[in-house]
Every structure is written in structure tokens, then in C-alpha cells.
Write a protein that binds this DNA or RNA. Structure first.
Lengths: 211, 211, 211, 211
DNA sequence: GATGAATGAGCCTTCATTCAT
DNA sequence: AATGAATGAAGGCTCATTCAT
């Protein structure tokens, strides 16, 4: 009996996770409006009703997916060891990390995009998001402060602007890959193109933060 | 008679234009999937079926809206007089133009976003888009060549990367305003914030292209 | 001027004819409900409004097509020279004629089918149809009377039943070709199959009318 | 509990059946194109979406109706006891059965008609139809073989042609009742007319198969 | 906890027809 | 005589969600 119960609990958590995973994929691929609850159920190999049982409705589910996505990037970001090198180099490491995270988690930027299309209506209702993302700002703040002390980074740089710059240079490239690829008639997803983009991004940030 | 006919033609063109305008607004606001043909008709004060009469279906309509959007930004961009000043300054002018165009035409970046969500399926089917956007590349190519000759701009800069950088820094800020505003708990749409953002963008690009 | 007028009149009659021809094809192919006025206009290379100008609406147009169809088969039927041979042979000639007419005018049976699906609502409103089809009955009546006198045809045969039998044996085969072909897994439209069918039909009618 | 479950299953099957029944009526009455899914739902006293839930779409529903129709006639046909009498008489029994089946199931011939209008597109996609109808051919094949042996039926008669003849003589009369009734200005649905028609049909088939 | 059945609202699109010249 | 513009009424189908067990 106990075994059963345990097994059940495990299964339950597992199924919830499977639904969340399926939802992330679907939402990222189609956007909130384009996503289909049926398809999420199918992907998760779960009964559709189960989704409602666990997550109440499509909006709540999306919110959960979004929160988890933020949590994940912040977790990995916080795990970087940026103290070992000078602040300017650490910032470039952050550029690299951001870029690679976007590449390896393409859902992340797509989810954000969809949420912004909806004017952040899910985030507005989410209690935890601000909290989750607090480290994003504090990391760069610390880095900028240290860089300034070290003399490796220009003094009057705003942490939010730095964060935005780092994200922007990678995010825009990746999110608009489809249209840019057509306009420039090249495949922007090829390794060479991606490497070159990272080089440019680091070059750009490096020039900007140089004292 | 001729007058009548003219009037008719004008009315027709006008109604088509009204539909396109309404569609741009709706598509920008809700994205392709979230947009409702009914609402477009309502906004245009046109009969819904007229939309199908003129534009066949929602996809064709979206494509037309998108093409027109590209056409418009390129037209204004091409109208800038960038030859009067050194190339490095001209590039900063381009940064300013892009920023202000995005601000004054918020639909533009939202349409692009939606189209990318759909993996550019409309653009892929659009003959004219590449052509329409040709000037985008050539303008910066010319500027970079001149800047290199003048010694005002660093030599080995790629035109596409420059274009992407300029767009990215503004685009990301504006498209993600909703979520960023929540995470940073500030209103990023306030004049002061916008001005500061433009300053940073110019600073960043200037540092990057400096010889 | 006169020439103009004549030319116009000719064109007019011609265009009406083109519309009728296009309508016959479309109605036969898709049935009344499946037929599209747009497609008829397209087929006739005429403006859609012109159809309404000439024929008021889809129902009237269908009625005209139907009347013309009846008129045509009766005209050809009446043109047969059945007096030259004994009545029993003449009847078999009628079987042959009917069969070949159906084969060469596949629209005819399909139009009838569609009209019957609609419970003959067009025919009910058509004044001329009964009149047009009067010869159908009288021809066989005459033949049966003559055959009886000659001793080549059995006496107590009803003209209507004869007509129905003749039509039925060919009509059913042709109108149900698609489904029968699947059930019997053969191509019933092949020449050999068609010839065999005609042979059977004649055999059957011959046996039935034999004195 | 078990009872409940059973009841549910019964209800479900019942509702599906009610939908099928309603669909048969509607399709027969209006043809595939003229039929309205709304009306089917109404007739079945079911929610319209339930139809899509069970049958995916209008075409699938029609296919199911068609298959069931074939299944039913073949089932009844196979239940005839034709072995008790000489083959020639058995064949006339088949004529009678076919006629009465058509009379009592007027939807059958109308469904076939509609399907043929659509060039058997549903049947083509139906796996089971050929199988379902296999007995149609084998019954007459057996009868013809026996009749030949007995000397009660002419030897060289093709089973398919016999089937077609039997069906044709009744089918044509019934399916074209509306138009024929107008042309001949009589009510072909009156008992006397129907009886007379059956008499003629048997007479005709009897004459044809006589050795 | 889990699931098959059922539904209301709405969406894109079609179509015959009319308007206005 | 001829036609481009416009429309009301539906039609098939989808989708998030709820019911009932």
C-alpha cells in the first residue's frame, strides 16, 4: 500500500512535470494563442482533463511554464563562477552564458516574446516573478561595482542597461532569425554564423564597458 | 461621369486602405493568431466579407500588412540625408532614426514578432520582401565604406551585424517593455527612460564602431 | 449601326448560350447544391452579375438548363427513323439510342439525378416540361401499337413501363458507375464493359417484349 | 457501479446511433452538399459538437452512414431463404426483396445517389465496403449456377449484370419518381402503381432468365 | 486521482444575391 | 448591356472548458 502511494506520488509529480514540459514546448512553438490544450495533452501523453485538474486553465499553466523558465535561467546564471576573473572578463562571460543559454533553450526567448505580445498579463498576476529575477540585477550590479573598483570597467554604467544590452544583442538575432534569414538570404542558424554573432556581441559589449 | 468614376476608385482604394490600417493595428495588438477578422472589419467600419473580397484570406491580408510595414520603414530610412555628415555621425543618426521609428510605429516591431512566431511563413511566400528591404543593407554598406575611407569608422565591420546591432538594442527594449517593466519595477515607457535608452544605444554603437 | 446591333445581338445570344453551357457542366458535375455561381461565371468567361441579369437566380438558371436538356434528347429521339423496320427492332433501336445518348451526354442523367434529389422542385415550376416530353410517350405508344398489329411485339405492354425499363437499364449502370465500379472492382467505363452492357440491355428488353 | 457504467455505455452508443440515424435521414433528404450538420444535431437532439467529437467531420459521418446502409441491405438480403425453391423463383424473390427494401428504406437509394454525385469519394476511402458487399455477388452467382444445373435458368448469364438489372428496374423508378410523376402526370407512389411496377419488373427479369 | 462525454462561444470562410453605376 | 463593389446569412469546424462519474 505504502509502495503504491509512493509510486502514485512519484507518478503524479512526474505527470505534472511531463505536462509542464509539453506545455513549454507547445507554448514556445506556437505562442499562447496558437497553442492547443489538446496538443499539450497529447505531447504529455496525459488526459486533457488532467491538465485542468492540475493547472486550472490555460493561463495558469502558461504562468507556471513562464515562472519555471525564469527560475531555470537565473539558477544557471547564478551558478557561474564570475569572481575568479576581473569584472570586465566576467561580464563577457555573462555575454557568453546568455548567448549559449538562449541557444540551448530556444523556448525561453519564445515564451518571453509571447508573454510580451500579451502585454505581460500573466507576469502581472504572478507573485514570485520579481523575486525569482532579483539575482539578474544584483549580479551585474556587483560586477559593475567591482569593475569600477578594479579599473577594468567604466564607472558610470547602469546595471539594467547592461543587462538589456547583453540580452538584446543575442535575443534579437535569435528571435528574428526567420525573417532576417530571408531578408539577408543566409542561414543564420549555421554554426559559423552563430560563432561570428557571439564574437560581435562580445566585441560590442567590451568596447562599451571599456573604461 | 469621369468624376464619379474617379470618386469611386478613390473610395475603393480608401476602403482597402482603411482595412489594411485596421488590420495592422489588430495584428500588431493581438498577433496573427489572436487577431480576429471580425474585429478588423469593425475597426475599418467595413463589411467583413469585403475583407475576403479584397484580400482572399487572413494570411494574405497579413502578408500585405507586413509588406507595407517594411516598405514604410525603408522609405523613411532612405529619405534620411546621411551624406551631409561624417559616416560615424551618420550611423548614430541611423540609430536615432531607428529608435524613433520604432517608437512612432509600435506596430512595426510587433508585426515582426508575430511573423517570427510563425517562422516567417508569410514572408517566405512573399515575392517582394527581399527587394523591398534591399536598401537596408546598402545604406549601411555605403556608410561603412565611407567611414573607413574617412577614418571615422573602424574598418572591419560587417554591415549586417551593424544593422542587427542597431535594431537589436532598440527592438529588445521596446518589445519586452511589459516584462522588463515588471522585473525592474519601473515604467520603461516614460520619456526619461526612453531618452536614457537612446543615449545608451548611441554610446554603445559609437564605442563599437570607433576606429 | 445595324451591324453593331446585329453583332451585339449575336454576342448576347452567344453569351447566354455560353452561360447555359457552363451551367450545364457545373450542375451536372456538382449537383445543384454543389454547383457554384462563381464557377459558372468563370467557366462561361462571363461576369457573375450577367448571370443574374439574364437568369434572375440560380434556380431559374437550373430550370433553363434542365428544359434545354429535355428538349435536346427528345429532339434527337424524334429524329430517329423508326418506321423503316419492324416495331420490335425499332424498340431495340430505341434502346441503343438511349444508351448512346446517355453516354455522349453524361450531363443529362446527372442533371436528372440532381433534380430528383430536390424532389423536382424546378420541374414543378416549369410550364413547358410536360409539353417538351410528350413525344417520349407517343413514340413508344405508336411502336407498341404497330408491333402488336405486326405481331412482332407482345400485346399488353404499357408504354410508360417500356420507357422506364429502357431508361432504367442504362441509367442505373451509368449513374452508379462510381460505386458499382468499387463494389465489383472493375472499370465499368471501359469500352468492352459498355458494349457488354448494351448487349445485355437489348437482350433483356427483347425477351420482355417478345410476343 | 457496474450498472451505472453499463448505462453510460448504452447511452453513449445510443447517442451515436441517434446521430447516425439523424444523419442518414438528413443526407438522404438533402444529399451530402445540401445536408446541414446543424440540422443533423437538431434531429438527433444532440449537441452539434458531439457530432465532431464522435465522427470527426461531415465526410466521415457520411461514410459511416453509407457503410451502415450497405451493411443493412446485405444483412437482410442474406437472411432470405432462397434455397427452398427453384433458382428461377428464388431470383424473382430477390427482385421482390430488392423492391420492398427500396420502398421501406427510401434513404438507401438516395444515399447511393448522392455518393455517386460525388464520384464515390467516400467509398473510395472506405476499407470495409467491398467486403460488406461481397455477399451481393455470391448470392446471385450461386443462384445462377444452381438454376443452370436445375435447368430453370438460362446458362450464360452474368451475376453482376443480373444484379444490376434487378436493382436498375426498381432503383430508376423510385429515384426518379418526382420527375417521372410530372412527365407522366400520375402519382407513381400510389399502391396500384407500385404493385404494377413490381409485376413488370418480375415479368421482365423472368423473361430474360428463362432458358 | 483520473477520465470519457459533452458543450457554448466563436472563428474563418463561403455563397447567393443585390447595389450602384 | 454590362460590371465591380458590397453584403446578410449561414456553414463547417475548433477550442477551452465543464460535467459526471
Amino acid at each position: 500500500m505504502a509502495v503504491r502511494k509512493e509510486k502514485n506520488t512519484v507518478d503524479t509529480a512526474d505527470k505534472q512535470q511531463r505536462i509542464l514540459q509539453a506545455a513549454r514546448t507547445e507554448f514556445a512553438e506556437k505562442g499562447f494563442d496558437g497553442a492547443r490544450v489538446d496538443r499539450i495533452a497529447e505531447r504529455a501523453q496525459a488526459n486533457k482533463q488532467l491538465i485542468y485538474y492540475y493547472f486550472t486553465n490555460k493561463d495558469v499553466l502558461f504562468t507556471r511554464v513562464l515562472e519555471d523558465a525564469y527560475r531555470d535561467i537565473r539558477k544557471h546564471e547564478a551558478a557561474l563562477s564570475l569572481d575568479a576573473c576581473p569584472a570586465n572578463e566576467a561580464i563577457l562571460k555573462l555575454v557568453e552564458f546568455t548567448w549559449h543559454y538562449y541557444l540551448q533553450n530556444p523556448e525561453f526567448i519564445r515564451l518571453l516574446n509571447s508573454e510580451n505580445q500579451l502585454k505581460a498579463r500573466h507576469l502581472k498576476a504572478s507573485m514570485s516573478t520579481v523575486e525569482i529575477n532579483q539575482s539578474w540585477l544584483s549580479i551585474t550590479q556587483d560586477l559593475l561595482a567591482r569593475g569600477s573598483r578594479e579599473g577594468t570597467v567604466r564607472g558610470n554604467i547602469d546595471a539594467m542597461q547592461l543587462n538589456i544590452n547583453i540580452s538584446a544583442l543575442g535575443f534579437f538575432y535569435l528571435i528574428n532569425q526567420s525573417t532576417l534569414g530571408i531578408l539577408y538570404q543566409t542561414d543564420l542558424s549555421q554554426k559559423a554564423a552563430l560563432d561570428e554573432r557571439l564574437r560581435v556581441m562580445k566585441e560590442c559589449i567590451a568596447a562599451w564597458i571599456k573604461p
